[in-house]
Design a protein around this nucleic acid. Structure first.
Lengths: 138, 138
DNA sequence: ACTTAATTAGGAATTATTCCTAATAATAAT
DNA sequence: ATTATTATTAGGAATAATTCCTAATTAAGT
């Protein structure tokens, strides 16, 4: 948290309670919340915070590589976990879990060579049923 | 093409000119067009075709695993290439290329184990600059 | 040809996101 | 501490992709 605040301050951005609250929530949760969900949560403490501020803050943080965005079923979900990893999305309940996987980097390098692209960012998603939804189905 | 028509017909779906035109375009193109783009193209031959029909057809084809959908920058892009592969998106011009990669399946299996999810679908995207946009930048 | 039920066109409704602007407040300077 | 500067915010309007709705059309079985 201090690191994030420091890095924003260094670049001349102001540290507002709204930004703090959003960063704080993202760091604490294991969830991959949507902008709207973050808004609902943060609103409990800061009832005046607007959804547009949540969006602006999220895109600022994304720009600074402090959060990651993934698009799932027409909406963006955010995550403070910015290292390369796999996001596993439950198509029933919408839960998203992270799985680390060292070989992702290799794939990225191989694909960059084959395709002649300059790769800047990766996004690996799997979709299925989480263990809880899986067992409820039977 | 015949396979697709046959498989739709088998399941009781009607073979309409609209559906044929959409499938035909998707099979011929190397692009990963959006619904709106498909609509614009198919409209040249079938001026009356509606965008909602394009959407319905695409989601029918997706349901039947005949096309793949990826979400990029707030819009869905479609592709008749349904085997596991990597989509590489150019963040400048929006082009999408495919790269085959055999190790994707391994990753999927490993992640399924670790996460205890039942995996149904995967989506691997890399984002960067295509070779053409890359050279234009310098 | 006739029937009937799936499909379509067209536009309205919905939803996530972005845009706009006057008011507010974080920071730097005094 | 006060003040001045200017980034940021709240709130709502605008936008854009997608979904929904319904009367008219039409593919396919008889």
């Amino acid at each position: 948290m201090e690191q994030i605040v420091a890095s924003l301050r260094d670049e001349g951005f102001r540290i507002t309670p709204q930004r703090m609250a959003i960063v704080d929530y993202l760091l604490k949760t294991e969830d991959h919340p949507s902008a709207d969900h973050i808004h609902k949560v943060v609103r409990k403490r800061y009832p005046m915070i607007s959804l547009s501020t949540v969006y602006k803050t999220l895109y600022l943080l994304k720009e600074k590589n402090l959060v990651n965005e993934i698009e799932v079923e027409g909406e963006s979900r955010f995550d403070a976990h910015t290292d390369d990893h796999i996001n596993i999305v439950c198509i029933k309940c919408g839960k998203i879990d992270d799985v680390d996987e060292e070989t992702l980097k290799d794939i990225q390098v191989k694909a960059a060579k084959k395709s002649k692209y300059l790769i800047l960012k990766s996004s690996f998603e799997l979709h299925g049923y989480c263990s809880s939804c899986k067992s409820k189905m039977k």
